[in-house]
């Protein structure tokens, strides 16, 4: 991945490491069709830059939780609070990148326009985003003609528009081959290294081991543990997480 600073895209004074939460989720509940999909989910994300991996088996409610935090859907109960000084949008990347039927450049310019970035600043930001996501060579290509990995990196670049206070990534590498996955993970780690706060959903244990600073383990709509990644993989506190790591968890 070429060297360039992705963040900050504009001067800011947020996310100095220190005490307090960036997001506090309290007793979140979500029911549909008589089934409880999320049940009393509570956790906090610290303000420290880094990658929190939301880990859990299929159907645990991971993507649902991400969409609730992203404000795409509303919870039936509970609250999601952001720290008073939370700034910037929430950037989101989905498992299947939805790209406009335009060139790579036009996709990013569209996102810059939607974020109401002043016109004179767009050219510089566009160039930075293209370099950061390693897409300069295909800037004029139709976005939908890119490889899966390139499409997902474009979706990531788009999510970085407007200097997001939080990045929510929903199984972004689930459809990618190992090389594309490695390139995407490198981009994620680079963005985190530059001060971004990232919540990434995956069911891939290996990926969680590679990039997680801390792990939130979700199973059947409930949080079973939230621990530093090293602790989680050395000695999971819950039987469910232990079984998941061993591949014996029944869903």
């Amino acid at each position: 991945m070429p060297e360039s600073n992705i963040l900050p895209l504009k001067p800011k004074g947020r996310q100095e490491a220190g005490a307090g939460f960036l997001i506090s989720v309290d007793a979140l509940g979500y029911r549909r069709g008589g089934r409880s999909l999320l049940d009393a989910v509570s956790f906090e994300l610290s303000r420290d830059p880094g990658i929190t991996v939301l880990l859990g088996p299929n159907g645990a409610g991971k993507s649902l939780l991400l969409r609730l935090i992203g404000g795409l859907i509303r919870p039936d109960s509970g609250t999601i609070r952001f720290s008073p000084d939370f700034r910037g949008p929430i950037g989101m990347v989905f498992q299947k990148p939805v790209l406009l039927r335009r060139s790579v450049r036009a996709n990013l310019l569209h996102a810059l326009a939607i974020a109401r970035i002043p016109r004179r600043e767009r050219t510089g930001m566009l160039a930075r985003l293209l370099v950061a996501a390693d897409l300069t060579h295909c800037a004029e290509s139709p976005a939908r003609a890119l490889s899966g990995g390139e499409q997902q990196r474009l979706a990531m670049a788009r999510a970085l528009v407007g200097d997001p206070g939080l990045l929510l990534l929903d199984e972004p590498t689930a459809s990618l081959d190992p090389a594309a996955t490695a390139a995407f993970e490198a981009l994620v780690c680079k963005v985190a290294g530059e001060g971004a706060r990232i919540l990434l959903v995956t069911h891939d244990l290996h990926q969680a081991r590679r990039i997680a600073d801390d792990v939130l383990f979700l199973h059947k709509g409930r949080i079973f543990e939230h621990t530093p990644a090293t602790t989680f993989f050395r000695a999971p506190a819950s039987g469910e997480a232990d079984a998941y790591c061993k591949g014996t968890l029944l869903t």
Partner: peptide, 21 residues
């Protein structure tokens, strides 16, 4: 596009213009 545009916080007007394009 709905989820993507809502995640980008597109206004209703921006959504309509994007869809027309």
């Amino acid at each position: 596009y709905d989820e993507m545009l809502r995640a980008m916080r597109a206004s209703r007007w921006q959504t309509v213009l994007t869809l027309i394009h």
